[in-house]
């Protein structure tokens, strides 16, 4: 597989080839899903999915697929290299989805704000669907999650009733197929982030951005020195992160959007619903949807 780190990748799947002579419909397959790059303020979120015949699971264990956090970087790279091999692809296929930082910013900041969880969920079902549509007979699905496993599981069961679904935290340490999926998420994610080529700032941006995590001192220093007063940060950064919003407030000029709510995009408090009518605190502003669409209350109808 050839990664194109120079371009700000938009989300799009990259996958292993299906091989001639392998009957993907006749064998029962298991499929694992994991993600890499949820927390960082820089770089893409990558979703990896791996699938193998249920009978081949012990072979994955033998290859060394286990909790990706206990695997060394060299070991992860070696496993990723093995997954490019046609011999391995005979029993282990994979597919990845890249959600660029730009896409994350766009979706999370749009008028119809979409949460990172919603984006993640869409990426996961997109991958499962893609593998099913390629004619692979998947009967078991294992997903690593950071959110509420039960809700996630129920939603997947409704979408894919033909598969037995298991959603579990730390699934990559329990199921080798999820460990394989985590390799296809983590290695490309690291590669994309490390080798990022900026299209902005005419070469004046350096790559000493550290891990990309908001708490990393190197990342913090890079963010501060890379901030343009008008445009803010390059597309490599997630503008929807509070770290970025705070930085822009301090180091860039103010920008007001027509759909900004008074006092910023804060959510109304639950308690607001429990005040007596007439109580000042209970009055809420009209939602921006009405303002944008120029919808007014009609008091009298004739």
């Amino acid at each position: 597989m050839e990664l194109v780190p120079s371009a700000p990748l938009s989300s799009g799947p990259l996958q292993s080839p299906l091989l001639d002579g392998v009957d993907y419909a006749a064998t029962e397959y298991m499929l694992g899903i994991d993600e890499a790059g949820r927390g960082p303020v820089l770089g893409p979120l990558v979703y990896g999915c791996a699938f193998c015949p249920v009978s081949q699971e012990p072979r994955l264990r033998k290859m060394g697929f286990m909790d990706s956090k206990v695997l060394t970087e060299e070991k992860r790279d070696a496993l990723w290299a093995a997954m490019q091999d046609r011999g391995t692809n005979g029993f282990l296929g994979w597919d990845i989805a890249v959600i660029s930082a730009e896409e994350i910013s766009k979706q999370m900041l749009s008028t119809n704000r979409r949460s990172l969880n919603a984006l993640s969920f869409d990426a996961a079902i997109g991958l499962i669907r893609a593998v099913l549509e390629r004619g692979v007979h998947v009967t078991q699905v294992f997903v690593d999650t950071v959110g509420d496993a039960a809700v996630y599981q129920e939603r997947l069961e409704r979408l894919f009733p033909q598969c037995a679904i298991t959603v579990a935290p730390k699934a990559d340490s329990k199921y080798p197929i999820v460990s394989a999926a985590s390799i296809c998420a983590k290695v490309p994610r690291d590669e994309l982030t490390r080798a990022w080529q900026f299209v902005e700032a005419g070469g004046s941006l350096d790559r000493a951005y550290g891990s990309g995590y908001p708490a990393d001192e190197e990342t913090k220093a890079w963010l501060a020195r890379s901030c343009d007063p008008v445009f803010g940060l390059p597309r490599f950064a997630r503008f929807s992160w509070s770290t970025t919003q705070q930085l822009l407030k301090e180091r860039a000029v103010a920008v007001a959007w027509p759909d900004d709510e008074e006092g910023g995009p804060s959510q109304s408090k639950m308690g607001a619903y429990f005040h007596k009518p007439g109580d000042k605190r209970a009055t809420t502003a009209r939602h921006r949807l009405f303002k944008r669409s120029k919808l007014h209350l009609v008091k009298e109808l004739r």
Partner: peptide
Amino acid sequence: VKHTGPARVSTY
């Protein structure tokens, strides 16, 4: 945009 003056438009 609360800014009047040059901006690096072609760069960003």
